[in-house]
Simulated assay, not measured.
Amino acid sequence: ASWIRLGVDPPEGAGWTEFRAWRDSQSAAAPTAVVAPDDECNIIYSSGTTGLPKGIVHSHGCRLHWAADVGLALRYHSGAVTVCSVGLYSNIMWASMLATLLVGGTLVVMPAYSSKSLLDVIERHRVTHGAFVPVQLQRLLEEDFGGRDLASLQALMCCGSPLPLPVKRAIPRRLGCELIELYGLTEGLVTTLDPEDFERKIESVGRPIPGQQLRLVGDDDRPVPPGEPGEIVGLGCLTMERYHNRPDATLEATWVDAEGRRWLRTGDIGRFDDEGFLYLVDRKKDLILSGGQNVYPADLEAVLVQHPAVAEVAVIGVPSERWGETPLALVVARGPDPVAATELRDWANARLGKQQRIAELRFVESLPRNPNGKILKRELRREHQR
């Protein structure tokens, strides 16, 4: 039999209810409430990385598609034991929970996350599946796995923000399981990089899962030519109903094609290769316009994170009298003896194009993140653009 464990080792006197006792105390009669597929199921708030969070409304029918489609893509089965390591308010966890429940698997909910406690939970409960954000996997790799029995692991998913390539390569090797990178929005859109394509397409975020259609559109709202970058728009059964009490935001997030179909705007810039694999370029709102040239912060961050003295990095645009905007790199150093800021900046600029060069690099103690681990660049801009 499968079950839900409400918490792991809940503290005494904290008011926890044992699930089976609660379940068995309920009436055996069928519920009187009738739920239609179009009825509202939940409101989940967006991460607010570039602006204030918005309430995302999903219907029950939409949520059933999330459970079935994501469950297939992430390879859940009745024997799955899924660890919930992110807050249950997050769509990352909703997708994992719904998929696990649909197939009759087991959920293990962590009261709080730490890398050590995650390893303990994996060993104790023989975890097979889990969903994580990049910063969790980065910190997990810093742990000593010596003597740990992690052989139960089958497939882990990572989503929420781009996964640095060194981490992406290291996770399957260190943990001995498959890693599936997922790109998607709570508003409704999913691609996955499957294990079969992992090595040859490692820089991509895979292809749309069945039932999803993606296009790329330019600033003129027309589809871009093949091979060119553009804003990712999506259409499919995972799409939200609307933003709660925000018809203006719902309209802003809508692109209408020539047939009158309403597609979801993602605000992300991407490109397709000739096999239909999607490559993320950057967030549209994070784009830096320097001297009339488009500079994508993600390209600069991907170079800086390869330096051994860099633990975390974020690049934003700051005002420049000469160029309009120039890139500013904010770096969290790794280890007690970081290199000089100018030395690290010059190291990165030697590996970047002339138009991409970083104007200034500053060391910071930490980068602001939301509860799901995404870097809040709006907070960085507010602090450093003055």
Results as ranks from 00 to 15, higher is better:
residue 6 L to K: 08
residue 50 T to S: 05
residue 60 H to D: 03
residue 4 I to L: 14
residue 144 D to P: 02
residue 198 F to K: 11
residue 46 S to W: 00
residue 132 F to N: 06
residue 151 A to N: 14
residue 143 E to P: 02
residue 67 A to Y: 06
residue 206 G to S: 10
residue 17 T to Q: 12
residue 332 V to I: 03
residue 221 D to V: 10
residue 187 E to W: 00
residue 241 E to W: 07
residue 38 D to A: 13
residue 345 R to K: 05
residue 281 V to W: 11
residue 325 E to S: 08
residue 334 R to H: 03
residue 178 E to K: 15
residue 113 Y to I: 04
residue 239 T to C: 14
residue 380 L to V: 02
residue 129 H to C: 12
residue 24 D to N: 12
residue 160 G to R: 02
residue 289 L to F: 09
residue 302 A to T: 11
residue 269 I to K: 00
residue 117 S to V: 14
residue 20 R to C: 09
residue 138 Q to L: 15
residue 154 Q to I: 12
residue 175 L to H: 04
residue 326 T to M: 11
residue 208 P to D: 06
residue 324 G to H: 01
residue 80 A to L: 12
residue 79 G to F: 08
residue 31 P to Y: 06
residue 75 R to G: 12
residue 324 G to N: 02
residue 286 D to L: 03
residue 200 R to D: 14
residue 235 L to Y: 15
residue 112 A to C: 11
residue 242 R to A: 03
residue 57 V to C: 08
residue 220 D to C: 06
residue 166 P to G: 04
residue 309 A to L: 09
residue 144 D to Q: 04
residue 67 A to N: 08
residue 110 M to W: 09
residue 209 I to N: 02
residue 371 P to V: 00
residue 288 I to S: 00
residue 146 G to E: 15
residue 341 A to L: 05
residue 136 Q to T: 12
residue 82 T to G: 07
residue 268 D to G: 06
residue 367 L to C: 02
residue 311 A to P: 04
residue 106 T to E: 12
residue 183 Y to M: 07
residue 109 V to T: 14
residue 372 N to P: 06
residue 141 L to M: 08
residue 302 A to F: 06
residue 364 V to I: 01
residue 96 S to Q: 14
residue 161 S to Y: 00
